[in-house]
Design a protein around this nucleic acid. Sequence first.
DNA 1: GTCTATACGTGGATAGAC
DNA 2: GTCTATCCACGTATAGAC
Lengths: 210, 210
Amino acid sequence: MGRTPGSPANREAILSAAKTYFERHGYEGSTIRGIADAAGVDPALLYHYFGSKDQLLVAALQLPVNPRDVVPELLAGGLDGIGERLLRRLLGVWGRDWAAGGPMIGLIRASATHDEAARLAREFFSREVMGRVAESLDMPQPRLRAALVGSQLMGLAMARFVIKLEPIASADPELLIACYAPTIQRYLTGPLPSDDRPLPPTRIGKGGHQ
Amino acid sequence: MGRTPGSPANREAILSAAKTYFERHGYEGSTIRGIADAAGVDPALLYHYFGSKDQLLVAALQLPVNPRDVVPELLAGGLDGIGERLLRRLLGVWGRDWAAGGPMIGLIRASATHDEAARLAREFFSREVMGRVAESLDMPQPRLRAALVGSQLMGLAMARFVIKLEPIASADPELLIACYAPTIQRYLTGPLPSDDRPLPPTRIGKGGHQ
DNA sequence: GTCTATACGTGGATAGAC
DNA sequence: GTCTATCCACGTATAGAC
């Protein structure tokens, strides 16, 4: 997608600093001045490049990998063991501690206090992730399934990186994979309750598309 | 435990307002002035009663039900169907929308940006919840099990109340119970990976107590 | 117990020189 | 493109009158 307008010396530094800053402190906890300091540039530059704190947030939280590519790639391997592959991939991206590259953590953190970040996360999840899954997953109620998966992954992220709940926080990735894979697998391919009994008027999975 | 010192007219109003305020806006998003306004009192009163914003937070986030009582109560019903009972109980407390009484949501929200809140959540979870579970649950690796449960519950809370991810956000509680109960049940009573293969030196469940 | 006034810092954002 | 200076709003917290 070409190059974003104006990518000289410091723009990347700002973006990189903003990424880890939002990741650790959330939205309100992050300050323009603080990010500027971390990037080693003048605060005014952030406005010059991004206009506002909000816009810096959305710029910083662009994911390094596009689910548009990843989701089909994971599904291409077949439904068997997809839970395990998904987890292994994700934990690889997140890293063990605060290695850069976990803007999703930043998004989660920011979502907790900042409404726009929550909206961002919601729309991203609904459109990019759940949409893709719904397209490719040959199962009833794909949106519900994707949301269930998302909820468990968010919980894992919270426990491991935000709350730092032991033993999850410092557990070996393989242990986490082994623990969570069956859950993810069931959410994606297992039986779901409303297969049996019809649902109250919450219109779920009705209409089939999206 | 008796009565906290100085419980006149407005103290309860402040506490109640602070509860819902932290619940919705997290820690940094909540302001002394805002809480005071919501409670209909003067900002200075908050300092008079609680001393600081931090102390107000810990006062406001005292859970209405004590896990010390709830955990044994749930376990008393036997291991069969404990996942479902746990979920039903929890969703009942949380309510459908922003009915007061969900300080746990506030704690989660605040934890995302405020380190002390995260520490609070961690210690509360480790000591109060996981400790109780470990005592009463006759299963190997009780701490890991409790943490897994916690992670899924946090994820559910995030999806339903913070990110508002559909269809989870507006789903009928019974649907959620049906979806999540098997997961919780497996985390509590199902087989866990490290029953088979020994773990890397992350010392989990080794030593047995706390 | 309750409120007014205020100190003091810090945050986001802008104007304009270089 | 980069930096200095600055505006202005709002945050926590305190002192002290009533």
